[in-house]
Design a protein around this nucleic acid. Structure first.
Length: 442
RNA sequence: GACCCCGUCGUCCAGCGGUUAGGACACAGGCCUUUCAAGCCUGUAACACGGGUUCGAUCCCCGUCGGGGUCGCCA
C-alpha cells in the first residue's frame, strides 16, 4: 500500500558568518532526527560563498559545536566555496536555452547571469506549512551567477541540493519566501525538486527573533554555561515540535523514534531559558558523577579547582547533587570544599551565631567530632544527634551554627555529608577558627 | 507598503466537532526537613474578536485585530 520511500538525504547548511545559535542548532537537530529516524543520510554543508563575510574560524567553531551537541554527520563538511566549477555549466545551459540572460555590464565590465521569470502562479507543497501559493508577478528575475563569478544563494542552493541528491530540504521559516524561486530554478533546469519543510522561528522573551541582544544564544555560550548537550537537544526538540501527549523528558533514541515533520508546529516559539535550566538540572541528576566531572573539567580552567583530582571532583559533585542546575553553578556552590580558609557570610553569622550558647554548642560539637567513630555520614549523625539530645536543644540549634562554621553560608548540602567529605582535620580546624571568631566577638 | 505565514494559561506543548480544555516551566501555598535545594500535594492562570456552517464549535469557512517573515549580484 505505502510506496516504499527511498532513504532520505538531508543537509544542514549553515553559513559561517556568525556563531552557531540555538535556532540553527534546532534546524540541524530536526534534519538529524529526520535522517536518523528513517535510515537516511545527514550531510553538513558550509555555505561560505559570501567571500567578504565568511570566516574560516567560524566554520571550525560551528563544526566543533555541532560535534559537541552530538549531531554527527554522515557526509561532509562540504564547503560550497570549493565547488566553484559546479555552478557555471548549468547557468550557461540556461543561457543557451534562452531562459537566462546577461546583465548590463558593471563599471568593471563584468556581467551577471540572470534567470528570466515569467509571471505565473507558483505552488509550494510544504511538509510543515501545507500548500502555499504565490503569484508569479511577485517574483523578480533571479540572479544565478554574480558579476564576480560566484553563484548567488538560491542558485547555489538548488545546484548543490540537486547535485548532492538532497531529497528533503528542512530549514528555517525565513527561507519560505525563497522557495518559489528555487522551484522555478529546478523547473528551468529540468530537475525534480526536493520536498520542502520549513521550521518556525525561535524568538526571544520579547517576541523578537533571537539575537545577541537576548544574551547567550550561541551553542558555545550554552556549553560554557554548563548546559549538557543532551539536555539542550531535548529542550530544542520540544521547541516547535512535540510527540503528542504530555511527554517531555526524552532520550535521543526516543526523539529519533518519535520525530516526524507532521507534528512540527507552525507557530514561532519563545525560547525559555528557565525551562532549559530546569531540564538541564534533571539531566544532571540523572548523569553519573564521572561523566559530570569530565564535562566540568574544561569549565574549571583558571580556577582554584583546576588541579583537583577526578575523584575529588566526583565526590563534590555527588555532595552537591541536584543543587547543580548547570555545571557553572559548581564553583559558587562548592567553594567550601576547597581546602583553606573560608569567608563568613555576615548574614549567616548574624542569623545563626547570635545565640549566647553558640560557642558552647560548637565546643561540644568539636569534642563529639574529635571522637566520632566511625567517621562516616552515619557515625557522624549519631554523634551529633547525641549532642543535641544531651543539651535538650533543637537539631537546628546545632546544625545551623555548625553549617556556618564549615561553609560560611546559610545554605548548603546536608551537614553530616559535609563533615564526612571535609574530613576530621579540616572540620576541626574550621571549628577552632569559628570558636576564635566567636570568642573575639562576644 | 506589497506578498506570504501564524494566533490555546506569562512561556513551551496536548487537543484534532460534544472535555470540569490536559501536562510542563515559572509563580503562590502546604508537607517533608539541620539550612538550601530536591521530592510530594494543592492552587492561580488560556481557546484574540466578530460573523457564519452545524443539533453542537478551541477545532471547519470568512472578516477584523494582533504578531512574524520576505521583498539584495547576503545567506
Amino acid at each position: 500500500m505505502n510506496k516504499p520511500e527511498p532513504p532520505p538525504r538531508v543537509r544542514f547548511a549553515p553559513s559561517p558568518t556568525g556563531s552557531l545559535h540555538v535556532g540553527g542548532a534546532r534546524t540541524a537537530l530536526f534534519n538529524w532526527l529526520f535522517a536518523r529516524g528513517r535510515g537516511g543520510t545527514y550531510i553538513l554543508r558550509i555555505e561560505d560563498t559570501d567571500r567578504l563575510r565568511s570566516r574560516e574560524d567560524l566554520s571550525r567553531e560551528i563544526i566543533a559545536e555541532l560535534g559537541w551537541l552530538g549531531l554527527d554527520w554522515d557526509e561532509g563538511p562540504v564547503f560550497q566555496s570549493r565547488r566553484g566549477e559546479l555552478y557555471l555549466p548549468p547557468a550557461e545551459r540556461l543561457l543557451e536555452a534562452g531562459l537566462a540572460y546577461r546583465s548590463e555590464p558593471d563599471p568593471e565590465g563584468r556581467t551577471a547571469i540572470i534567470l528570466r521569470v515569467e509571471p505565473e502562479e507558483i505552488t509550494v507543497f510544504d511538509r510543515v506549512y501545507g500548500k502555499i501559493t504565490v503569484a508569479g508577478s511577485e517574483l523578480k528575475d533571479i540572479v544565478l551567477i554574480k558579476s564576480d563569478g560566484s553563484p548567488a544563494y538560491n542558485f547555489a542552493c538548488a545546484v548543490d541540493d540537486h547535485e548532492m541528491g538532497i531529497t528533503h530540504v528542512i530549514r528555517g521559516d525565513d527561507h519560505l519566501p525563497n522557495t518559489p524561486k528555487q522551484i522555478l530554478l529546478y523547473r528551468a533546469l529540468g530537475w525534480g525538486p526536493p520536498v520542502f519543510a520549513h521550521l518556525p522561528l525561535i524568538l526571544g522573551a520579547d517576541k523578537t527573533p533571537l539575537s545577541k541582544r537576548h544574551g547567550a544564544t550561541s551553542l558555545k555560550a550554552f556549553r560554557e554555561a554548563g548546559i549538557l548537550p543532551d539536555a539542550l537537544v531535548n529542550y530544542l526538540a520540544l521547541l516547535g515540535w512535540s510527540p503528542g501527549g504530555d511527554r517531555e523528558i526524552m532520550t535521543g533514541e526516543e526523539l529519533v523514534r518519535e520525530f516526524s515533520l507532521k507534528k512540527v508546529n507552525r507557530k514561532a516559539a519563545v525560547f525559555d531559558h528557565q525551562k532549559l535550566v530546569w531540564m538541564n538540572g534533571r539531566y544532571i541528576q540523572a548523569a553519573a558523577p564521572e561523566e559530570l566531572a569530565e564535562r566540568l573539567r574544561p569549565l574549571l580552567a583558571g580556577t582554584e579547582w583546576e588541579s583537583a583530582s577526578p575523584e575529588k571532583l566526583q565526590s563534590v559533585i555527588s555532595l552537591l547533587g541536584h543543587r547543580l542546575k548547570t555545571l557553572a553553578d559548581f564553583t559558587d556552590l562548592a567553594g567550601f570544599c576547597l581546602e583553606g580558609e573560608i569567608g563568613y557570610d555576615p548574614e549567616a553569622v548574624a542569623k545563626h551565631w547570635a545565640g549566647e550558647d553558640t560557642g558552647e554548642i560548637l565546643a561540644e560539637t568539636r569534642e563529639a567530632i574529635e571522637r566520632a567513630e566511625p567517621f562516616t555520614r552515619e557515625g557522624l549523625e549519631e554523634a551529633l544527634r547525641a549532642v543535641v539530645e544531651r543539651r535538650g536543644i533543637k537539631a537546628g540549634a546545632l546544625m545551623q551554627p555548625l553549617r556556618v562554621a564549615l561553609t560560611g553560608r546559610k545554605d548548603s548540602p546536608g551537614i553530616f555529608e559535609i563533615v564526612a567529605l571535609l574530613g576530621r582535620e579540616v572540620t576541626l580546624d574550621r571549628l577552632n577558627r569559628a570558636l576564635v571568631f566567636l570568642g573575639k566577638n562576644s
